[in-house]
Every structure is written in structure tokens, then in C-alpha cells.
Amino acid sequence: MMNMLIKTLLGSAFAAVVSLPAAAATLDEVKERGALRCGVNTGLPGFASQDDQGEWQGLDVDYCKAVAAAIFDGDGSKVEYSPLSAVQRFPALQNNEVDMLARNTTWTMNRDTALGLNFVGVNYYDGQGFMVRKDLNVTSALQLSGATVCVQSGTTTELNLTDYFSANNMELNPVVIESQSDVNAAYDQGRCDVLTTDASGLYASRLELANPDEHVVLPEVISKEPLGPTVRQGDEQWFDIVKWVHFGLLNAEELGVTQQNVEEMLESENPKIRRLLGVDGSFGEDVGLANDWMVDVIRAVGNYGEIFDRNIGPDTPLKIQRGMNALWTKGGLQYAPPVR
């Protein structure tokens, strides 16, 4: 700290005189530091939160662990988590305070281009959904004409809601409320029939209701919120590594490679599995990692399906269905290019 202080106080004054070396490759920096610096949400149920022991848990957190495992030979614990607020996340990545963001960040064109970020893929297809009481016997959002809808004011959620109702010629009675917790409370007290926000948030809101099992999330999703891990632009190798960890997790699920059977799968005759696990080819070395990088990743966190089920799936308190996040082979959108 002392060292940093003097560097800062004295160094900043002469910064203009001293020429600085070009930024080193992120992979080398991470290896030298011995830890991946990963920006996560300060707290989003199922995506990033701390358990009773203070360990970080969640779908996004497992992506940090997966990348760390790929770099540090299967040691997924070598991660320094930086909990970041929504305003903090992009400056933190741009200022090199974190190496990657796994912080439920929506992939938009502006962020991908003007903000200088690279989105490695979509680890959760989110979108605005509706929650209603089960005893209303509503099965589709199209039956909601004339219903009162609780919604947070001044958000895209409110705009999407208006668009959806007018596009389907339905009558909308919005109850617009300032904060999301007040929206939840209003719905719980019966001031409105329908609660709407992003689907991942709806499942968490459901747990705050007096009787979670009396409420149901409708299948319609009316907006596109593709959430994904993000890296800085300008380091292609690092971009490739994080991207292929994501694709590797999806391919592993598609090929049936799990945390339990990964050792047996090393003997598999299936050429796709042999390439994924580094038995054949040099795919890991080509991206700057060890050849068995994917074995390390799966040993540490399992495949995408296992990550999903462990953190937000039907057996967790959140009880989120796979839906759009199922593999393409099962009617979902999750699709990864092949390892070959």
C-alpha cells in the first residue's frame, strides 16, 4: 500500500514524461498474478451471491471458476471476486481492475461496439416475463387483457409492457411503482394481478412472497435480454479463451460429459469427446492453455447443464426451468460451435 501511495503521489505528477510499456497480454498477467480477477454482481440470487461461509456461488460465479480452472490446471479457487454495481462494471473492466465480467450483463450493440467490450456468448437468455397467482387459471400472457400489472417505473420493463399489450390489442391497467421491492410488496398484497420484470428476477421475487407456490411464471418472454460474460476489446487471445470455455461447457453438456464421468470419458472412442477433452489434437495449446483444459474445467464446475441445475435449476429454491436456455438439441437456444 505504501508503495502504491508513493507511486501515485509522485508518479502521477511525472506521468506525462515517462513512456509506459504496452499492456501485456491478459493471460500472462493472470498467470503471473496467480489469480483471475472476475467482476461479479454484488448480489443476484442464483447468479452471484455469498453463502453462509462467505463463498461466492451462482451461475456467473461458476463461469469465473471455469475460466480460472482452465488457466490454473483445474484450480477453480484462484479467483479474486470484485463485486460491482451496475455503474461500476464497465469502468472497472476498462480500467483493467478486473480481467473479465461475469455479471449478468445484457449483450447490446452499443456495449459491444462503442464501449469497447467483447461479449463471449450468452450464458443465460433472460427476458421480461409475467408472474400471476395460480388460482387465476391463466396459462398464457395473451389472456391478460384488462389485468392490473405491477411494474417498476422508468425502466425498459415498463416500455416493453406497453408495447406488448398494444401489439396484441390488449387492455393494460398498469400500477407503476418506484422501487422493485415495493412492486413485489404491492403484488403480494393483491394490489395487482400480474407482476412483471426480467424472468430471472421474477423467480427471486417469488421467494419473497408469502406463499411462493401459489404463484406461477407464465411461459411468454416479451423482450430480449441475452446475458453473457464480457472481456475488454483488444486482446484476442483472452477473448478466445473465455469464449471457448463457454463453448466447451455447452459442448460438454451436448456430449454428455459430466463432473462424475469425465475420467471415464477420457477413454471414449467418440472423436468429438476426444477432441473436447484434449485426447486428440492440440486445441488447448492453440489458445494458450494446456491440452486437457476442458478436463480441468469440467472437474471444477461440471458442464453447462450441471452449472444451471446447481445454481438456479428446479432443485434449487429459485426453481427456474431451462426454457430458452436448453440446448439446441432439446428445443432451446444454447448452441456451441464444434471443437475441431
Binding site: 448480489g43 440470487p45 452471484a48 451471491s49 453462509d52 421467494l207 438456479i312
Partner: peptide, 8 residues
């Protein structure tokens, strides 16, 4: 935010 503890 810990899903194991979310209650009303």
C-alpha cells in the same frame, strides 16, 4: 441475495 435465505 443468497437464494438459500430469501423469505418474505
Amino acid at each position: 441475495a443468497d437464494p438459500n435465505w430469501i423469505t418474505p
